Simulated assay, not measured.
Amino acid sequence: MTGKFIRLLLVIGSVLALAYALVLFLLAMDSFESDTIALRDILGFGIHSVPSLIVMILALVGWKTPLWGCLGFFAVAVGFLLFFGGGYDTISFTMITGIPLVLAIIYAVVWFASRKNMKEL
């Protein structure tokens, strides 16, 4: 793989990770239950925002070190699999656990390809 393709794959993975974090952040807004905002709503929003913050941090880490991005997103996928394992329909379950798994694969490909290119130089 060429260096440009590896860089493009890294950009695609990072943009997808940030878009996924944005979706999780928007889903966290369901913690606001009424028209008025109370302390309980703000605390609930903070707790529901933790997964999106973790995904954002992993996107930044994966940008610099794809191996850690791969391992981190794989851990997120396994964690979501264990936490959201039952009681959800297939599409929701796939969105919650499948996207981090795809991100882990993208970062793994970037890491393997960049290592191969380093050895060829």
Rank of each mutant, 00 (worst) to 15 (best):
D41I: 09
L71R: 04
G13Y: 07
A21Q: 08
D30S: 13
V102W: 07
W63C: 07
A38V: 13
L16D: 04
V61L: 14
F112V: 12
R115I: 14
P66D: 05
T65S: 05
N117W: 11
G85Q: 08
P51H: 07
L22Y: 08
V78P: 00
K4P: 04
K119M: 15
L121M: 14
L24I: 07
I6C: 09
T94N: 12
M95T: 03
G44S: 08
T90C: 00
Y20F: 15
L26I: 05
D30E: 12
S34C: 07
F74Y: 04
L27D: 06
G44T: 04
G62I: 13
N117P: 02
E120V: 12
V50K: 02
D30M: 09
T65I: 10
G44M: 08
P51M: 11
W63N: 03
L82E: 01
L58Y: 01
T36R: 11
V76H: 03
Y20W: 14
A38Y: 09
V55N: 01
G46M: 14
A77C: 14
G72M: 04
A19W: 08
S14F: 07
G72Q: 02
S31Y: 08
G72A: 06
S92G: 06
L60M: 05
C70W: 11
I37P: 00
M95A: 09
L39R: 05
K119T: 14
C70A: 15
A59I: 13
G13N: 11
R40L: 09
T94P: 04
I42K: 01
L8I: 15
W111N: 12
F112Q: 04
A113E: 10
F5Y: 05
L27Y: 06
L26S: 00
A38C: 04
A17W: 07
S92E: 01
R7L: 13
T65K: 06
A19Q: 05
F74H: 01
F5V: 08
R40K: 11
N117D: 10
S31M: 10
S14C: 13
A77Q: 02
C70N: 04
D30I: 10
E120G: 03
L16N: 03
K116F: 13
I96D: 01
P66V: 12
I99R: 03
M29Y: 00
V61T: 05
T90Y: 04
G98T: 11
L67N: 01
I12C: 02
L71F: 09
S114P: 05
D35K: 12
L27K: 07
L82F: 11
V15R: 02
L60S: 01
V23Q: 01
K116R: 13
P51W: 06
P51C: 09
Y107Q: 07
G62S: 08
I37V: 15
P51N: 08
L10S: 15
F93K: 08
W68T: 06
